[in-house]
Design a protein around this nucleic acid. Structure first.
Lengths: 169, 169
DNA sequence: TGAATATGTTAGTGTTATCTAACAAAGAAA
DNA sequence: TTTCTTTGTTAGATAACACTAACATATTCA
């Protein structure tokens, strides 16, 4: 009798395989060893052995020489990783203005390093910035953009606030 | 003749060892195998073998049964890692208000995942927030803090801006 | 249908990093 | 100085991943 190797925490590597399979499934319906291999930039034997592990853990279904498909559990984990990935990408590219290619690469590495707490707070931050009204959002984000480019802050035009600051010293 | 194994890019793991040695050196002057083992939460044979690698790469000096010391190159790399670590910790704890313990842990994992570009932009962001005048910094950061706690934005008091927004729809 | 091509798997290796158990050296205390 | 304790090293096992080379199955198309 065969007992499945479920439960034990997944390595970042295996998370990456799940993520890749999810992306390919979304794109093409089913994932084949070669697709995964291409996306992950590894050779096919590495994929085969990763699939064996994932099948053992009950996260993927895979018939010899056939397609790979995420199980319900596999999908759940993959969606979770993807969620972190997307949030990080958004943070890096739309707030920090990092080159999309670089942002994607960094997100890929960071998505495994985030604690739930950090994930939550960072998401909230992104949401705070993105959903802000036209009033306040671009106000300080544009200030940051300017600071990024020039290293200088935009002039403060609020007289009252200026006075407050000056009177401090 | 022995050719040193320099140049090749360092694994995150080895970066962590360098970082640990730097911290211990700063604290106690010299680093001993046991100190490193304690800080890295590994057994001493792991430290011995890591030191061998680092000595090979010319990043650490180490005599059998003696102290470990960073070389000039080792120091340079360790400082670099530490710089990333500190910046990340500051971002996580003072901007996102993440629990210091968690922030430290996440910083430790993320510090190896940052591209130079992301490092630069994120540093600039932290600097932008930290060095902002009393006028603008806490203004929106406090807004975020409030949003974190309540999920609601603070009321907009700028009539002109409000009008602008309303007239849009 | 039956080669030729494309795709997938197995077997065996190498690398990195961890561990335990056994041994060796240094330092402290008697 | 000799023993005890602490610390460090070596040897050898294990685990996760990647690779190449060789083999097996599917698919295509002539």
């Amino acid at each position: 009798m065969h007992i499945e190797n479920v439960g034990e925490k997944l390595s970042s590597n295996m998370e990456d395989y799940l993520e890749a399979i999810a992306l390919i499934e979304k794109d093409k319906g089913v994932a084949r060893v070669k697709d995964i291999s291409r996306l992950m930039k590894v050779k096919t034997p590495s994929v085969t052995s990763a699939l064996n592990v994932l099948v053992d853990k009950g996260l993927v279904e895979h018939e010899r020489y056939g397609y790979a498909e995420l199980t319900k559990d596999g999908k759940r984990i993959a969606q979770d990783v993807l969620k972190r990935h997307k949030m990080l990408t958004k943070f890096l590219s739309s707030i920090l203005k990092i080159d999309p290619q670089v942002a994607a690469g960094d997100a890929c590495k960071m998505e495994h390093a985030l604690s739930p707490e950090t994930y939550k707070k960072l998401s909230t931050f992104v949401e705070f910035v993105e959903t802000g009204s036209e009033v306040d959002r671009p106000l300080w984000l544009k200030g940051f953009d300017h600071y990024l480019k020039t290293g200088k802050r935009v002039q403060c035009k609020n007289k009252q606030a200026l006075k407050k600051v000056k009177s401090r010293k």
